[in-house]
Design a protein around this nucleic acid. Structure first.
Lengths: 465, 465
DNA sequence: GGGTATTTGTCCGTATGTATG
DNA sequence: TCATACATACGGACAAATACC
């Protein structure tokens, strides 16, 4: 067994790891049987013209992983359990090439709503928070962690929400979860099955699907310029209402203060609850900031939901909800059933990030950035598309809607845009009955300033305006 | 002499100076006598998880100041003159009381099953994986990430499961999720509501609660020495069976190969599915490794579930399940409804950790550690409690059961233990009807070796044996 | 069969290159 | 540029196991 050709000093991987891999592989393949003696360190070191210690290092790694054992003053012996790779190498399952989905990176200009602008993320600050929290809390990561979420983070969230959204709560009301859908799922189980839930039409399709999956009785409620129609709510008398007041999910309208008060009054009178989903409440552009429903509520009827996906990293997967006191007990119960879904360390990193003021800083920076992008998109649409479209939902959030006054339907508009390298999105899916519309959605957060201008130009060409 | 608590990476002073001060102080106090040998650089560096060079720096500084001398190839030796300290340090400030909390917690010897041993977690390796993956994938953290989980991690899990458990799957079958309960929840929605599910009695109470919350029809099936009773399964004909074959959740028995084959045969014949929850399959101690149900299955009837909670960090919150092909489509659909629940970065960190062999290393190390602890607890029980108890479920996993032959019930046994500072746990809650038992559960993973011995001694006293 | 030379793992200090801030 | 910390690799001293005479 001559190993010499397998060692290469010029490779990136160190000598001892090359040695380690060599032996491990030969054990897998059965060339080194259980119990066999490995060459002594000196012998091998001489043969390979390397140091004993290097061989020793390789052997130690093998030993650490349980493949070999040392008999002092006698030698090293292969001692792996068959179970370690009993099934290995007879044939590995072929890894199916699943990535075709990635579609050729044809230079799309993609107005997808979910995208955000990555170039401004404060990497080094985040990284620092991450490392700090690991070094600082290290040993605490072993506790399963609080089911509701780390106390520290919950306190910070409560404080932030109070200052920025007027939400009034204590840390015991905050529940951290791995994304809005998970929290909605938990919420569904807090309520009895088969209750009726008022759902904005159009609204957030994912939420509707989760309600459906939990066999709730969905009552579509129309939305007008001021928000959800109270009249219809009163007619239907659902047990629960799901709304997105600070930026209506599809239409982008902001619920007026009057409408809010009416809705709260109705909920108090009927002992109903309101789910206030403030999924991108951080970003508004005009007018007075309207207080959140939760902040206006006097009767503990509001469940407030928020997330860090839009305003920080979409892939971070940290969201939260605020339970009103009547739901606390049941809420904690259901939550503890699923345990906490966000890793302790992610939570503590975020807490550190917030404590250092980096969060606030980032929000302000992004708000400024998005405000600028919004101005650019509005200006470009005005100039290029002019009279042929009407802009809606432009007062908050990270997207706008275009009502298009052309003889095409939603589908055609999207198809034509696609042929010109621009991805835009339909709104009909947000409606209960997927009615035909002439409206398309443009999320601008993830598109660069120049691409916004160019994208709108391309729309003009695509639609032959 | 354990120095660990005296080192703190977050302090301003560098590690080597902290070390330097520690030794200097101890020489002053006479704890390190003249001529005594200091720990070798390697030893100390390993023990403290720092680099040799750091220790070397500290020793060099001490040497430069004449406190110690190096004998080449032999060690470093204290060599100060008493006069060196004649005027210095009239009284050193008492070393930081960092361990007080630990002292208080020490009152309890807690045999809680969920605890794990934290002292062996390779912090620096984890930290490194974390930083590396952030630097390497940074910009990719903006994509929402693949709903099933990052391709890289899914591939590694598929490979690991194939080698260690004989599970046969491709990455497209793997679904990553924030904890076993979340995955169970998703699974529940993959199946129709109101189907019947065979549930081991006794079994995993949390799983049962989730099935109940999803309004499944729960069919308790008794368990004998070989595993779940096939006869009863055949009588009841549930649509689905939930089992923990590699370490029955409550009783700790390992399902025999015959029983496995019978169960699979039944499932194939009845077009039923089996959920194989391998929650701590990494740890078995005796006998041949039994192949997983998923590996034995020829008809795509098995859903395999596993987790990194037991074997890595409980607070990490990364679990996975393997769907058989008939469930793929629906499974992906439901999963995408909730989006991916684990942050991209956590996934990529874990992937990096696995790729570097750190995961395998850690598993082997923990296996060894737990094997030892198991031996200690068995020996201690044998010696202290002897004839008065019978040990069950000792062949795998991280806990044992004790059938106690004394005139006390479960509750009394636990109460008495508690009064002597030992926490042990009931098993009756795992049964459908919470029957009275005389059996208690002792999880030993999170208890130190000396505490195990002392804890068992205290049980002897508590029960007046 | 008992002493001796050799082999072998273990442990030690040292030197150099690199990443980070 | 410098301080700090880590990773890799080297060569030698030591004592026990083993082989050999």
């Amino acid at each position: 067994m001559d190993i010499t050709p397998f060692l290469n000093r010029n490779l990136d991987s160190p000598l001892y790891q090359q040695l380690y891999r060599y032996f491990k592989e030969n054990m897998h393949r059965g060339r080194i049987q259980k119990g066999m003696k490995l060459p002594s360190k000196r012998l091998l070191a001489n043969q390979l013209s390397i140091s004993q210690t290097t061989v020793e290092r390789a052997y130690e790694q093998l030993a650490a992983e349980g493949y070999i054992v040392s008999k002092p003053r006698s030698g090293w012996f292969a001692d792996y359990h068959d179970s370690d790779f009993a099934y290995a190498y007879d044939r590995m399952p072929s890894t199916t090439p699943i990535q075709q989905e990635a579609e050729e990176n044809k230079q799309w200009i993609d107005f997808h709503y979910g995208n955000v602008d990555s170039s401004y993320f404060p990497f080094s600050a985040w990284r620092k928070s991450m490392v700090n929290s690991l070094d600082q809390y290290g040993h605490e990561l072993y506790r399963p962690g609080h089911v509701l979420g780390e106390f520290e983070l919950r306190t910070l969230i409560a404080e932030y929400l109070y200052q920025s959204r007027g939400v009034h709560c204590g840390p015991e009301q905050v529940i951290i979860g791995a994304g809005n859908p998970i929290l909605l799922q938990i919420l569904c189980q807090v309520f009895e099955p088969n209750i009726s839930i008022g759902y904005e039409d159009p609204g957030y399709p994912r939420a509707r699907k989760i309600f459906e999956a939990n066999r709730m009785n969905i009552v579509p409620i129309p939305v007008d310029d001021e928000g959800i129609c109270i009249q219809k709510v009163k007619e239907q008398q659902p047990n629960l209402v799901y709304v997105t007041p600070s930026h209506q999910f599809t239409l982008g309208t902001i619920m007026t203060i009057n409408r809010r008060i009416q809705l709260l009054k109705w909920a108090a009178e009927n002992q109903s609850f309101i789910i206030e989903d403030d999924y991108d409440g951080e970003f508004r552009y005009t007018g007075q900031p309207v207080p959140s429903l939760q902040g206006l509520d006097q009767h503990n009827r509001v469940i407030y939901m928020g997330t860090f996906s839009k305003s920080l990293l979409p892939s971070l997967r940290i969201s939260y909800m605020i339970l009103p006191s009547p739901l606390l007990k049941k809420g904690h119960e259901i939550t503890s059933l699923y345990k906490q879904t966000v890793s302790c360390h992610s939570q503590l990193t975020l807490a550190e990030f917030i404590k250092n003021g980096e969060w606030q800083k980032h929000i302000n920076r992004m708000r400024k950035l998005y405000r600028k992008k919004r101005a650019i998109v509005l200006e470009a649409v005005q100039r290029e598309l002019g009279e042929h479209v009407r802009i809606r939902g432009e007062n908050s959030g990270l997207r706008i809607l275009l009502d298009v006054y052309l003889p095409f339907g939603e589908k055609e508009l999207i198809e034509k845009a696609k042929k010109h390298g621009v991805k835009i999105y339909p709104v009909s899916l947000s409606y209960q009955n997927h009615p035909p519309t002439k409206t398309v959605s443009l999320g601008f957060a993830g598109v660069s300033e120049s691409d916004i201008r160019e994208g709108i130009k391309k729309l003009k060409a695509a639609w032959k305006i």
